[in-house]
């Protein structure tokens, strides 16, 4: 239970140089007006004063005590005009309207589903914000409410968009698009949400026959490639949208899916943001190595992969 692999960390000695307690590291914490202009990232820790509250406004990750703005999380200090925020380097997913997320149904409730989306509370998917099978446009009736479990059941994975927030900060999702809905034919991989940047499209198809859905909440769906027309055809076909059946997936595709998944896991462990070019490069490297797919998860292979890919960029 204690023997966890911890390969993202450099050796201990490098981080903690032995030192005498009298040696005080002098970091001046007070920000002048110019400090922000230089464009380098300033790090901070909980309880560290950042600046005076008279000159600046406090944002997320800070609080005011004694006319001083003080950081409450460990991360980078950011400033927009007079607003000072601290962005935590690693935290749970902070949703924004319009974000694409991948989630898992945790509970079926009257007229709504509860969805785990790696946020601080479970998200809500209302019955009124899903598409009916076959794309029928009408009000949801009581009969639809009674067969909610034929659409989504506990444990089902889905891709959705953040629609709005409730008063307590919980998010409401919708799946009113042909590309959203239940997920099949693949595998879920989880990475820290900070590693997923906002992109023009979060649906990526790699040339190796693998589709990716990069949820901004750090959940990534790796699946068999489906052409757009096929997908939209399915959406109009009443059965296929909410089907629980996987298609036939051949061995080569299965290997490709697990290889991509393992590459994503390695990037997650090394805290490297995911981009499509990086993934492709890593995939090519992994194929060249001719090793077994599961070898990627070994520490030395992972390190070599990251070293190669980051060196190119």
């Amino acid at each position: 239970m204690i023997a966890f692999a911890s390969f993202a960390q450099p050796p201990q000695d490098a981080i903690f140089p032995r030192h005498h307690p009298d040696v005080v590291d002098d970091m001046d914490v007070d920000l002048g007006e110019d400090d922000f202009e230089r464009g380098y990232q300033r790090l901070t820790c909980p309880g560290e004063p950042i600046t005076s509250s008279q000159a600046f406004m406090r944002g997320h990750g800070t609080y005011v005590d004694n006319e001083e703005v003080i950081a409450s999380v460990a991360g980078t200090i950011e400033r927009v005009n007079k607003l000072v925020t601290v962005r935590a380097v690693r935290s749970r997913y902070n949703p924004e309207v319009g974000d694409l997320v991948v989630g898992r149904i945790t509970e079926v409730q009257p007229r709504r589903w509860k969805v785990d989306a790696n946020s601080r509370q479970d998200a809500v998917l209302m019955l009124s914000s899903v598409n009916l099978p076959g794309g029928v446009q009408r009000r949801k009736l009581e009969s639809d409410e009674l067969q909610m479990r034929t659409f989504f059941e506990d444990g089902d994975l889905l891709v959705a968009e953040v629609q709005a927030f409730f008063a307590d900060g919980a998010m409401s999702l919708h799946t009113r698009s042909l590309r959203y809905g239940k997920l099949r034919n693949g595998q879920l991989v989880t990475v820290p949400p900070a590693l997923i940047r906002r992109l023009k499209s979060h649906f990526i198809s790699l040339p190796c026959g693998v589709d990716l859905i990069l949820g901004l909440n750090g959940y990534i769906w790796v699946s068999k490639h489906m052409s757009q027309s096929q997908q939209e055809g399915d959406a109009f076909d009443g059965e296929a949208v909410y089907s629980n059946r996987n298609d036939e997936i051949d061995g080569a595709t299965r290997i490709a899916i697990s290889r991509v998944s393992n590459i994503i896991r390695v990037f997650g462990a090394h805290f490297i943001p995911l981009t499509d070019t990086l993934l492709l490069e890593a995939y090519e490297w992994a194929v060249e190595q001719e090793g077994d797919v599961r070898d990627l998860l070994q520490e030395d292979v992972g390190d070599a992969l990251v070293a190669t890919v980051t060196a190119h960029n």
Partner: peptide, 29 residues
């Protein structure tokens, strides 16, 4: 030191910048 290690790792992954050119590129291959 953990914070700076993670920030460095995040920066290391995208040498060609997270900004405009990532957004311009077409994703679908």
């Amino acid at each position: 030191s953990r914070t700076s290690a993670l920030i460095t790792a995040m920066g290391g992954g995208l040498g060609h910048g997270p900004g405009a050119d990532v957004l311009e590129r077409d994703i679908v291959m």
